[in-house]
């Protein structure tokens, strides 16, 4: 499993907006109508390709109901990208976006790429937040915006991949110092044939991962 880069993502947003379903759709390509409430944090990973470079995404799917700031704060550590999710059928989840954004800005590094996702767009008949409002919010806060549906898989791939593309572009533009792992980016062994790194080679790299 060689990769050129490894990005850490974090998915945030109110409880019940479909964060875990988005992750499941992205990693497993399936939808679970009844999903267990996430406790703490759950994890997913997938390889994608950007610019012919294999990139590994490691996704931290957080619990939206967690009121435990001291714990949730640490999730942001070393995240290169964040998916901020709201439910287009529940207005309050949109209203809370500002809080989430503030939280993210406060605890994540400043260069973290944040993508705003209006989930459940398949339920347009129950829509409570218009697409324009979402776009407006994203524009105001400098986020990338997309409406998606974890159920129909619409825009799910795109959301994750375009975030990765943005991060990748930032790397190319030299915004990140990729050797500094606090940006949530790790340079892998992508393209280099042969063993995907011995134990000794990686342990030193992994050392600074989240600490």
């Amino acid at each position: 499993m060689s990769y050129a880069y490894l990005f850490k993502y974090i998915i945030i947003g109110d409880t019940g907006v479909g964060k875990s379903c988005l992750l499941l759709q992205f990693t497993d390509k399936r939808f679970q109508p009844v999903h267990d409430l996430t406790i703490g944090v759950e994890f997913g990973a997938r390889m994608i390709t950007i610019d012919n470079k294999p990139i590994k995404l490691q996704i931290w799917d957080t619990a939206g109901q967690e009121s435990f700031r001291s714990i949730t704060r640490s999730y942001y550590r070393g995240a290169a990208g964040a998916l901020l999710v709201y439910d287009i059928t529940r207005r309050e989840t949109f209203n809370h976006l500002a809080n989430w954004l503030e939280d993210a800005r406060q605890h994540a590094n400043a260069n973290m790429t944040i993508m705003l996702i209006g989930n459940k767009c398949d339920l347009s008949h129950r829509r409570a937040v218009s697409t324009e409002e979402g776009e407006q919010f994203a524009k105001e806060h400098g986020l990338v915006f997309m409406e998606a549906s974890a159920k129909t898989a619409q825009n799910v791939e795109e959301a994750f991949i375009s975030t990765a593309a943005t991060i990748y572009k930032k790397i190319q533009d030299g915004v990140f110092d990729v050797s500094n792992e606090s940006y949530g980016i790790k340079v892998g062994y992508g393209g280099i044939p042969g063993p995907s790194g011995g134990r000794d080679g990686t342990s030193s790299q992994a050392g600074g991962c989240c600490s």
Binding site: I39, G40, V41, S74, G78, G208, C209, C210, S211
Partner: peptide, 13 residues
């Protein structure tokens, strides 16, 4: 510890 796996990440659940 070296990987930065804090116990509460999994122990919470």
């Amino acid at each position: 510890v070296e990987l930065g796996v804090e116990p509460q990440y999994f122990a919470l659940r």
